[in-house]
C-alpha cells in the first residue's frame, strides 16, 4: 500500500536504513519460551486461540535463548533462579529486549521477603513493565505493542 507510487522504473524503494531494520525487527520478534510462575499461564492464554498473539508476529516461541530476541519474564524470580535468568539473558544474541510481565517481575509484588528478587531489573535491563497480578492477556499484548513502538523509534547511532 502506497509503495506502488514510490516504485520507480527500476522497482526500487528508497527508505532509511533505520526504518527498514526496525520494521523488520518488530514484525518478527521471537520470544523465548520461558515461563516462571502464574504469569506463564496467562502468557499461554495469550498464545492460545482466544487472544492469538500471532497477530503481532509473535507466534514463534523459541525454547532456546540462542534463537530468541525477546525475553518475557513471566513470574517471580527467586534468588536461586536469578543467576540462571542472567545466564539465559547473556546467551541471547543481540539485539535483545526484556518485558517484565506482572508485578512480581516488575517489583517483587506481594512477596517482599528473603527469597524473591525485588524486580527483575536488578539483574537484566527491562524495556517494558506490564502491571497486573497476573496481567490479562490483553495487558501483555499491550506491553508487546508498546515494545514494538519503542523498537520502531530506535536510532542507528545507538545500535553499537
Amino acid at each position: 500500500m502506497g509503495v506502488e507510487q514510490k516504485l520507480g522504473e527500476m522497482g526500487v524503494v528508497t527508505a532509511r536504513l533505520e526504518d527498514v531494520v526496525n520494521w523488520g525487527r518488530t514484525n518478527a520478534m521471537w520470544p523465548m519460551l520461558f515461563g516462571l510462575a502464574c504469569c506463564a499461564i496467562e502468557m499461554m492464554s495469550a498464545q492460545a486461540a482466544n487472544y492469538d498473539m500471532s497477530r503481532f508476529g509473535m507466534e514463534l516461541m523459541r525454547p532456546s535463548p540462542r534463537q530468541s530476541d525477546l525475553m518475557i519474564v513471566a513470574g517471580r524470580v527467586s534468588r536461586k533462579m536469578a543467576p540462571v535468568l542472567r545466564r539465559l539473558y547473556e546467551q541471547m544474541p543481540d539485539p535483545k529486549w526484556v518485558i517484565a510481565m506482572g508485578d512480581c517481575a516488575s517489583s517483587g509484588g506481594v512477596f517482599n521477603n528473603y527469597a524473591v528478587v525485588q524486580g527483575v531489573d536488578e539483574i537484566v535491563p527491562v524495556d517494558v513493565y506490564v502491571s497486573g497480578c497476573p496481567p490479562r492477556p490483553e495487558a501483555l499484548i499491550h506491553g508487546v505493542v508498546t515494545l514494538h513502538e519503542k523498537v520502531r523509534k530506535e536510532k542507528i547511532k545507538d545500535w553499537a
Binding site: G75, R76, S78, K80, M81, F111, N112, N113, A115, V116
Partner: peptide, 10 residues
C-alpha cells in the same frame, strides 16, 4: 527450588 517464594515465612 527455582521458584521458592518464601510464602510460608511471609
Amino acid at each position: 527450588g527455582f521458584l521458592h517464594t518464601g510464602i510460608e515465612k511471609n
